[in-house]
Design a protein around this nucleic acid. Structure first.
Lengths: 156, 156
DNA sequence: GTATGAAACTTTAAGCTTGAAATATTTTTC
DNA sequence: GAAAAATATTTCAAGCTTAAAGTTTCATAC
């Protein structure tokens, strides 16, 4: 989804198609760079980072379904990633509240420390990778993307 | 890479971090919707669509390495996707030019027809999914993303 | 209290993705 | 022109991803 079907020079909707293609190329370029650095510097992956980032925001823990909803990925997907993080000792499942179907997932002490270090580097990388975007431009772009998102969210 | 590590309210680089998170969430949301529709309506996938889109632009064919460079994915990845497209009769490999290491990959007649249909639907979907973005706004956003991209490309 | 259905999660099969190693071919160097 | 380096591609192992089907537990209705 990086190329797009020969957008004709003009016509209704062509500008949106062009926008979509640019958006996708930008995020894929940055994503590839981040993935490579996460691997090289911390021997981890983007999905693991995503899960840890979500859990870091929720010290009390999250349900599996909260995680998958928040990260925009499927349920089964989260199961696998959390499994691996648990086996690495970075995340823990606690099956304690009344509902025995659910398990509260949270970062371990070790996971929290590890994440803090990775997150600091991550923020630096983003600043570096996006340094051709001025802070002001960044705010405006964010605003536009935000309004797209909030409009979109109510629809499905 | 959809959440991001608790962006502090302010500070240097925070606006860029926020921008990155929005960018990623927007593209993931749209991507998920496209993937679902491609599956439901045409029983195909986003990676297959990407490869076919690239080949549609190059009737004379492309090398595997051209494909992987253009699509921003690894070599081995393209091999697998093309293998499946070949087995479905939508794509053909031609090992004909002087260099016997390379193979020219192109759409078959059937593949070209199939792609044209899917692409028409795809363009409509994008118009629909992005209809909260005005055409004017789309052009401005595209411009900003473009300048990011061209600045970035010279660097690595 | 027991059947019905809903909810939370896991498992499975198929496919996508990467980085690294392997293979085959061409080009360069001496 | 043979050895070495470079290029184009494929193979491989590990992990990510989805949709669909399966399991367990909970809530509702009767």
């Amino acid at each position: 989804m990086v190329a797009g079907p020969l957008p004709a020079r003009s016509g209704p909707g062509k500008d949106r198609l062009r926008l979509w293609i640019r958006l996708l190329r930008a995020s894929r370029t940055i994503e590839a760079e981040l993935r490579e650095r996460l691997k090289k510097e911390f021997n981890t992956t983007l999905p693991r980072f995503d899960v840890m980032a979500a859990l870091y925001r929720a010290p009390e823990g999250m349900l599996m379904s909260d995680l998958s909803r928040f990260l925009l990925v499927s349920n089964g997907n989260v199961t696998g990633i959390v499994d691996r993080l648990v086996s690495e000792g970075l995340v823990a499942r606690a099956r304690r509240n009344g509902d025995r179907r659910t398990s509260m997932v949270r970062l371990t002490e070790e996971g929290s420390k590890a994440f803090a270090m990775i997150a600091a580097a991550h923020e630096g990388w983003i600043g570096e990778l996006l340094d051709t975007v001025s802070e002001d431009e960044a705010r405006r772009l964010t605003g536009m993307l935000n309004s797209f998102r909030s409009n979109w969210e109510g629809r499905e």
